[in-house]
């Protein structure tokens, strides 16, 4: 038989096969399981609530907060300038431009850390850079930024500095507690109170 006809028959058979099978639309993961495990172990994906609060207050243009909860939860409460990408639609093409870029710093958050971490894992495995997770999620955000607790008088200076910052952030982000608003209605008076505490702490230390 003519070898050219054999070749033609072979190619047509391959063509029939490729026409009959469905297209492979699976997205390929770029990181191996081991690489991902290393990243998870190092906890590099977490951004603390203080860092995020600082960036929001300073209107840092490089962050993009991404709420991975459901749209109705997003409606009820969300962080300033956050966008809503529910976890279920994280793979839709509509969001690829947002998630796969190297300009902004995307920070996923959910109520806890679970959903945000899942979003991070999926996007990380797709090889996307610049995605992070808000440590502790909104619960921890409420606990630390919205309603910061005064540290014990024996705590180190750092704790007071952190508390000062959190109180300021809380006021700036509109999350001041009843007691806070009761004590001080103006921002300017707050730092004075804080400084007094610091002095006390210093005196005790000596």
């Amino acid at each position: 038989m003519n070898p050219r006809l054999i070749l033609a028959a072979f190619i047509i058979t391959l063509g029939l096969i490729i026409a009959a099978v469905p297209e492979n639309t699976t997205k390929q993961y770029k990181l191996t399981a081991n690489q991902l495990l290393d990243e998870i172990k190092s906890d590099m994906q977490f951004i603390s609530t203080d860092e995020v609060a600082d960036m929001i207050i300073n209107k840092d243009p490089s962050i993009q907060l991404i709420d991975v909860r459901s749209p109705d939860q997003f409606e009820k409460f969300s962080l300033p300038n956050a966008i809503n990408i529910p976890l279920v639609s994280i793979l839709s093409d509509e969001w690829t431009d947002v998630l796969d870029q190297d300009v902004k710093m995307n920070i996923f958050y959910s109520n806890g850390t679970l959903d945000a971490n899942e979003a991070w894992m999926i996007t990380r495995q797709l090889g996307y850079e610049n995605n992070y997770v808000l440590q502790g999620g909104l619960n921890y955000w409420a606990e630390t930024i919205m309603n910061p607790k005064a540290p014990k008088s024996t705590s180190p200076d750092d704790e007071f500095a952190k508390y000062d910052f959190r109180k300021g952030a809380s006021a700036a982000l509109g999350g001041a507690t009843v007691s806070n608003t009761g004590n001080t209605s103006k921002k300017s008076t707050k730092p004075k109170i804080k400084r007094k505490k610091k002095k006390k702490r210093a005196a005790g230390g000596c």
Binding site: A8, I11, I12, G15, I18, A19, A20, V21, E23
Partner: peptide
């Protein structure tokens, strides 16, 4: 049309 089917058509057209 799907890319597989287009491939088959192209093969036939080529031959």
């Amino acid at each position: 049309i799907s890319q597989g089917f287009f491939a088959l058509l192209l093969i036939i057209a080529a031959f």
